[in-house]
């Protein structure tokens, strides 16, 4: 698999795994309106994942479609960010995870508008609008919860501290990233840090939350090095499809 294909697959897997997590919320959110809001996120991210899978499949050239890639790969072949495979926890943790991700994804899509890969640039153009709305929604909720009640403040501060180590991966470029940056396919991950930091700090301030100190953490899902959560997630996601090899649905 070429680095270019791997780069795109990382984005596809990241969106799919996060959509899968959000799908778990449907019917269980704190209010009916939030059920609709989270479902909306899931649909948008799933749509982005499908476009990216189609592109990755073409780049790979082995005839694998979106379902082959999504349902028939193992944990170690999955290249999603570690951040998005973290369990939902309570609504606060879900919002913190979402916000940290949205701020990154928007910066990434904005950069990908200049990608030399025209398909990737087109996907980014469509997806950036959705991302902007997501950031508005998750940022809004983080502010309400951070500056709501003492209980909500404590819950999201704890979630922020817990999830912060997973943000290192977002800005730590490796060989695959460098192979994409060279030919102008994607931005250097480090280059997204400033825009991300600015957006995050602005919201954290309004949410009266403290930015956690930097933590060393180097187990990167984008390199196929996952913790224990992804296994359960994929088992649930893939079980029915795998139980009927070759069937269409």
């Amino acid at each position: 698999m070429t680095p270019h294909c791997r780069y795109v697959l990382r984005l596809a897997d990241t969106n799919l795994v996060l959509a899968q997590r959000l799908g778990e919320w449907v019917g269980h959110a704190p209010a009916l309106e939030e059920d609709l809001g989270l479902a909306n996120f899931a649909l948008d991210l799933l749509g982005q994942a499908r476009m990216l899978f189609a592109h990755a499949g073409e780049l790979e050239g082995r005839g694998r479609g979106e379902d082959d890639l999504a349902y028939l790969r193992e944990e170690s072949e999955y290249l999603n960010l570690t951040l998005v495979e973290q369990p939902n926890g309570d609504f606060g943790r879900t919002i913190v995870r979402q916000f940290l991700f949205d701020a990154w994804q928007l910066a990434l899509y904005e950069a990908l508008l200049q990608s030399k890969d025209p398909r990737l640039a087109a996907i980014a153009a469509r997806s950036a609008k959705e991302s902007a709305y997501h950031l508005r929604y998750s940022g809004g909720w983080l502010i309400r919860l951070g500056d709501g009640t003492p209980e909500s403040h404590e819950r999201v501060q704890r979630a922020l501290d817990r999830l912060w180590p997973f943000t290192n991966e977002l800005f730590d470029g490796d060989d695959v990233d460098r192979a994409a940056t060279g030919p102008g396919i994607g931005p250097a991950p480090e280059s997204l840090r400033d825009a991300w930091s600015r957006r995050v700090d602005e919201v954290l301030a309004e949410a009266t939350l403290e930015r956690p100190p930097p933590v060393k953490f180097g187990w990167y899902g984008k390199q196929g090095r996952h913790g224990e959560h992804l296994g359960y997630l994929l088992a649930e996601m893939q079980s029915l499809h795998r139980a009927h090899p070759g069937a269409t649905w």
Binding site: L16, L43, G47, E66, D67, Y71, E236, S239, A247, W249
Partner: peptide
């Protein structure tokens, strides 16, 4: 939703439940 057997079916099901 979490076990839908294809990405298209997953999408449609989320939209329906929503």
């Amino acid at each position: 939703i979490t076990r839908a057997p294809s990405l298209l079916r997953k999408t449609i099901l989320i939209a329906k439940v929503q």
